[in-house]
Design a protein around this nucleic acid. Sequence first.
DNA 1: AAACGGATCAACCGCACTCGA
DNA 2: GTCGAGTGCGGTTGATCCGTT
Length: 325
Amino acid sequence: MGRAPCCDKANVKKGPWSPEEDAKLKNYIENHGTGGNWIALPQKAGLKRCGKSCRLRWLNYLRPNIKHGEFSDDEDRIICSLFTCIGSRWSIIAAHLPGRTDNDIKNYWNTKLKKKLMEMATFAHQRRPHHGAIYPTTANSFLQNPSLQPQTSAYHSTNNNCYTTTPARVFTGGYEYMSNIPSNLLENTSSFTTCSTNSSTPTVFQTQEGHGTGLVQNYQVKDNYNNLLIFGNEASCSSSDGSGVDEDLGLLSYFGSGVDENQKFTLPANGYADDQNKATNGRFNENPLDYSIEEINQLISTNNICNNLNYSVDEIKTEEQVLYY
DNA sequence: AAACGGATCAACCGCACTCGA
DNA sequence: GTCGAGTGCGGTTGATCCGTT
């Protein structure tokens, strides 16, 4: 036995809404509200439309404060992050983007954002071996991809040679999954500063080696928590003896063909160290859409690679009620 | 200028869920 | 506990737009 139809299909209009219909619906809801009954609303409002059609038209187009037009980078990032964690729960994602509707976001994802990610996957695949670029950041920015947060409390306390730069300095380098690093190079990473624990405050440390200026020239962090190797050296550091390459134990040299201007990043001087034996918060940030090829493929094809977002789906669900007043 | 194809997005469809009788 | 009406939501469709040939 099939479900009873919600309305008399033969006597309802379908297709695009006319301005007159919009005006009738808007006027009725503004004066009387929905009355908690969409099925009865079209008749009361003098519309030959299905109640569901009225509801959709109101929610997606007529209700106040609807935002149309281009999505911002911030909105892109939120959509990507949430999609990573909860999949195609468009209504929940919409609850985090004021003025956006689930339909809008769904269309945007299907027509643009997914394509954007696929193009990035192609690009990432071309620059083999792939590695993440670390981008300029601000003191308040934060690593956007939860799965790649560097965790640092371990080497804060254990490595007295670590300190941040003052003032901020530009570095060239990147990160790479350990699984992608040739074994002979991986063997040489034993001298890397190691971190293996989770921490809410990501910090990047640099080792002081090779140069006698007292300022940092290179950094090398073995992030066992995320299976990442973070490596590079100071972009402005011209080392005639090639020590800039030696200092990163060949990693920058190995991945060097893919390191370009865009992969320089700035270590901010926030919370700077007046005591060089103490590490401070040199946070780094990656471009929010610069996922590895594996992550992009997962973003495109699956809906669950996130397991350490700061809030649960249940918490998000309570927020989604805000969307539909 | 016309034809074509891809992109976009509003709207529809149908399933699942909620809630009250 | 069951049933059915109403609602919410995600997937899909199709009309329209726009750029290219």
